[in-house]
């Protein structure tokens, strides 16, 4: 490991200044579960760590229900879930509101590393690291997640589905970092699910992972989002496959069509974790499983992870 400096940002503006002064080898430190390992193994040049764990903005974890129709005039709270970029995973999956409304997020964040890692690792870090096989990113995509980003150029919002641009590469500009992640409130009759395939039961990187969000009006799918991991240079949103599900019931034929279409849309490689053919096949299997699970949850059924 090379020698490096550490600075704790006192405010968001302070963090931006530290990153600007530190130049290219300055990196934002949240949980550090990827970054520190990369620095130690010299896979990433790091000269300065800017710790953002002590900022109110990066440690927020709050859910607001949509404003009820009978609320007093002028009463409005922006609805949805806000997860600060430095909130550790154990708080995310342990939160009752997240458990009730964002099951895919619970399922994904529950299996990233072991308990010790989950005490440190964050959704913001998982996204910024931009691994094609990241476990939480497809879940965040399926849930319509948006990254709130700040930097010397100001504040902007980047949909999670557009955040990753290549293996380890993202839309973040120098001095920019993720402050928090926002997820819209789910529709009243909706459900989400996330699954991954690994040869073991834990402590593994996904051969394939998949996430789905489905909302229903009557028996008809009214809204759908699908995303995959570990089958392309970036986590992959499947808007076209999802759109084809909308406006009709989710029967076996629809699920099979979606599985086949997802399988065709995947662009996997063969590596030591799995072959291209194996991954395509697993995409079909996992898409079927997450769609069925999300639909069951939308019906109010208790479906274990």
């Amino acid at each position: 490991m090379q020698a490096l400096k550490y600075a704790r940002a006192a405010s968001v503006d302070d963090a931006i200044r530290l990153l600007r002064d530190g130049g290219e080898a300055a990196r934002v430190l949240a949980g550090g579960t990827d970054l520190i390992v990369q620095a130690r193994e010299r896979r990433r040049e790091v000269h300065l760590l800017v710790d953002i764990k002590r900022l109110a903005e990066t440690m927020v974890l709050a859910y607001h229900a949509p404003t009820p129709p009978d609320a007093p005039p002028g009463f409005y709270i922006y609805p949805g879930l806000e997860v600060g970029a430095a909130v550790p995973l154990y708080r995310v999956y342990g939160d009752p509101d997240v458990q009730r409304h964002y099951r895919a997020l619970v399922e994904a964040s529950h299996v990233i590393g072991g308990t010790a890692i989950q005490g440190r690792a964050t959704l913001g870090g998982n996204l910024a690291n931009a691994s094609p096989a990241a476990d939480s990113i497809p879940a965040m995509m399926a849930l319509g997640g948006v990254a709130r980003v700040v930097g010397a150029g100001g504040t902007r919002e980047i949909p999670v589905a557009e955040f990753c641009t290549g293996p380890g590469r993202s839309a973040l500009q120098p001095t920019e970092f993720i402050v928090s992640l926002y997820f819209p409130p789910p529709a009243s009759r909706s459900g989400s699910a996330w699954e991954r395939f690994i040869p073991r039961n834990e402590m593994d990187i996904a051969v394939v992972n998949a996430a789905a969000y489905l909302a229903f009006e009557g028996d008809t799918v009214s809204e759908a989002r699908l995303a995959l991991g570990a089958v392309a240079p970036t986590p992959l949103a499947l808007p076209d496959v999802a759109a084809a599900l909308v406006g009709r019931p989710l029967d076996d034929a629809a699920i099979d069509r979606a599985s086949a279409a997802a399988s065709a849309a995947a662009r996997p490689i063969s590596d030591m974790r799995g072959t291209e053919a194996q991954r395509r096949r697993l995409v079909g299997v996992l898409v079927g499983r997450v769609l069925r699970k999300a639909a069951a949850r939308a019906r109010g059924e208790e479906v274990p992870a």
Binding site: R200, D204, I205
Partner: peptide, 29 residues
């Protein structure tokens, strides 16, 4: 029997030289 193996490329380079990818069974397997 199930998941452990050295994975090599044709140049004799081991591709899974970590406990992440050299898949020994863990307790919950």
């Amino acid at each position: 029997a199930l998941n452990e193996e050295y994975v090599y490329d044709s140049n004799g380079r081991m591709l899974n030289a970590s406990f992440l990818d050299y898949r020994m069974p863990v307790a919950n397997d």
